[in-house]
Design a protein around this nucleic acid. Structure first.
Lengths: 225, 225
DNA sequence: AACTCACATCGGCAATCAACGAATACGCCC
DNA sequence: GGGCGTATTCGTTGATTGCCGATGTGAGTT
């Protein structure tokens, strides 16, 4: 019952500067209307609107729970796009996923993988809590939008490491389309990095890094951390 | 700023059935008094007491944030036992730590590692979100109590896998002493499993499993999941 | 143009919360 | 017993939320 998604959504709303916007983000992500959500919670639709618009800026945690749980139920009803977690797990696109026991300062992370920051505007700051290594092509062709949140494992404060990158546009576009946002994006031996990718990274305030290390070497380095 | 601990504490409080008790748990874990916490938040001590005792059962998320952030600050002040995350990271005791991209049903997890449940009372149910492989001895001798939460990575809903176990008493005692609780404890090739360990597992409602697989084999199996 | 659907806005009342402070209780140590 | 630090209880006061229902708006149909 205590799915990860539930905890993540709850923390996200609770710690958000604008809980309303965050609530809306998740509602839209689940793909339901204010009306349906309100019915699931047995309240009037205006209640949802009041929260989302910010008129009610600090809901009680009881309310947050009701909302989160209603969202989970709605997801379940509509086929459980998000909550049905295990089903053989053929995540073709995910090559490796790991969390660090402790957060690692981003600049140290970059150094460790011989990385070079390519987005001037967004220097490696903050912490990195984990990483996911992805096969760019398979992710884009093979994963449904609802699967995307799986690549974030725990903590979205992580590095998404793409291998098989040509110009680095598609990965950034995909990230832009998704409500969750990684702390860092790493391209492994890209042919080149398109200026548009850099621009998108700066827009999204995501630190963009390239490295010339090969994957096995990379994994080795990372496992040392 | 957005440390993992912060998110975890926030989610824990927000989703708790008894937010007061949860708040108290974390305050005590950080090791501060109601008085000091109240001063840090610029409120009267009775406010804290009111929350913790349950008179105020559903604090607004604004309040939750203030409390969580005050706790983080207090931790920082007292040397950052919890928040100082990176410091070379010599977590001798942690052999491996990983999160699954999706939660895995506990019974499947057990089957996958040729495990045998030894606590009748607590069958493998729920999901397992990740695992941590630990060197029992080093954990017990080498880690300070404040380091313990690191072994939970993200999601406490995980399997703690102990190698080098003799009777399995100390690991269970350590778990009992800590506020976080794993979903499952696995002993790798233990000499034997003491009845007391079983009893403690049942008390804590933690699923207890033993396996005869060797560590490399185990890691291999787990990485397939 | 009339009709939906999704969402926003607003007034308003009851319920709840936020916060204080003073009184009270529970150790524990001289 | 007396003092000290800590936690609890509780009455009280604004302030805010919880919730409703009516009304508005704006995009998309038909």
């Amino acid at each position: 019952m205590r799915s990860r998604l539930r905890e993540r959504v709850a923390a996200d709303i609770t710690l958000s500067d604008e809980p309303g916007k965050t609530m809306r983000k998740w509602r839209e992500e689940i793909g339901t209307s204010q009306y349906d959500l309100s019915k699931e919670m047995n309240v009037s639709p205006s209640v949802i609107s009041d929260y989302e618009s910010g008129r009610r800026p600090s809901p009680g945690i009881k309310t947050v729970r009701r909302i989160v749980d209603a969202l989970m139920r709605l997801d379940e009803l509509s086929g459980g796009k998000f909550s049905k977690e295990y089903e053989g797990v053929e995540n073709e696109g995910i090559l490796d996923i790991k969390e660090f026991p402790v957060g690692i300062p981003a600049d140290i992370f970059v150094k460790e993988i011989d990385g070079v920051s390519v987005a001037e505007n967004v220097p490696p700051t903050n912490n990195v809590n984990g990483y996911t290594i992805l096969d760019s092509l398979k992710v884009i062709t093979g994963m449904s939008s609802a699967d995307y949140h799986k690549i974030y494992g725990w903590s979205s404060q992580r590095a998404l490491i793409f291998v098989g990158v040509k110009f680095g546009r598609s990965p950034m576009v995909a990230i832009r389309a998704h409500p969750l946002r990684p702390a860092m994006v790493v391209y492994v031996r890209p042919e080149r990095v398109d200026p548009l990718a850099v621009k998108l990274a700066e827009l999204e305030k995501v630190c963009l890094v390239r490295t010339e290390l090969e994957v096995p070497k990379l994994v080795d380095r990372l496992s040392r951390l």
